[in-house]
Design a protein around this nucleic acid. Structure first.
Lengths: 137, 137
DNA sequence: GAACATATTTAGAATAGTTCTAAAGATATA
DNA sequence: TATATCTTTAGAACTATTCTAAATATGTTC
């Protein structure tokens, strides 16, 4: 279900988000926005080093941070790993973690209804649900 | 709302869980079970180094892992920090993170009702909700 | 309670993931 | 075209945690 974007479209997205569209950034976006599924920085680095002439680890990290800061990606930290996971879904949503495959699925907001009876002093800004289990094939 | 335990009660808990009750472990349990509020290993180490003659970092980590493995503690990984957070509440429950104070509150299972319409192939084992916001005083 | 096996603790080295530094290179601006 | 500004880079540094191997403590047997 990933979107397909031309380099020009990616360039526009970056500019609109206030990120200067360098070669490295465009390439990384091609991967994280159009191909990857909740990648870690390491996975982005591996892909980039195979698909670009030359790119440093620092640039990968710089770029991921720039994309998160610009609001084009979200950084996730989940219980099963200490690596940051990047999510190109920037809408509010929930996650299902398949503990057998290690794969993470996005669950749209609307599919989950959370009703809470918290004491009034708890003022909630965000609610995030993590389901853990397995996905049958 | 923390429980108060005598060294003997702590010793018994450790034995029942199959953990040899050494001086260091009993001391750390005194802190994590009776005093601390979602501490990190670092906080446990700081407390231990102030309150015990001498304790090494390695022992703190060894002990925390032993307690988690024995089922006396749970290890949590939350979005706002890369440090592992230890929770002495080993029941299924949810969390509220106060983004102003950095404090984490346990929310009992019963206070939260999660209704989901997931496709049938998603077989859920666990559901964890993280609320983020602020707690008024 | 001495002797022995087993488990725990320790200091320090090692590792993993990420960030920092400062120099070199690219890009945009005047 | 010169100049200021950003980006990239290699490598060092940093943070959280784990590993290693030696020393110490604990439990067990006679």
């Amino acid at each position: 279900m990933k979107i397909s974007l031309t380099p020009q479209e990616i360039e526009k997205r970056l500019m609109d988000a206030g990120v200067q569209p360098t070669l490295q950034r465009i390439a990384i976006c091609r991967y994280v926005l159009c191909e990857a599924d909740h990648p870690t920085a390491e996975q982005v680095k591996d892909w980039a080093q195979q698909n670009l002439d030359k790119i440093s680890q620092a640039t990968v990290y710089n770029t991921m941070n720039a994309l998160v800061d610009a609001g084009l990606l979200r950084a996730l930290r989940l219980p099963h790993t200490e690596k940051v996971i990047y999510d190109d879904n920037i809408e509010d949503h929930h996650h299902f973690f398949d503990e057998e495959t290690g794969r993470l699925y996005d669950l749209p907001e609307e599919q989950i209804d959370v009703r809470s009876k918290l004491p009034k002093k708890f003022k909630t800004n965000r609610v995030e649900v993590l389901f853990t289990g397995k996905v049958e094939d």
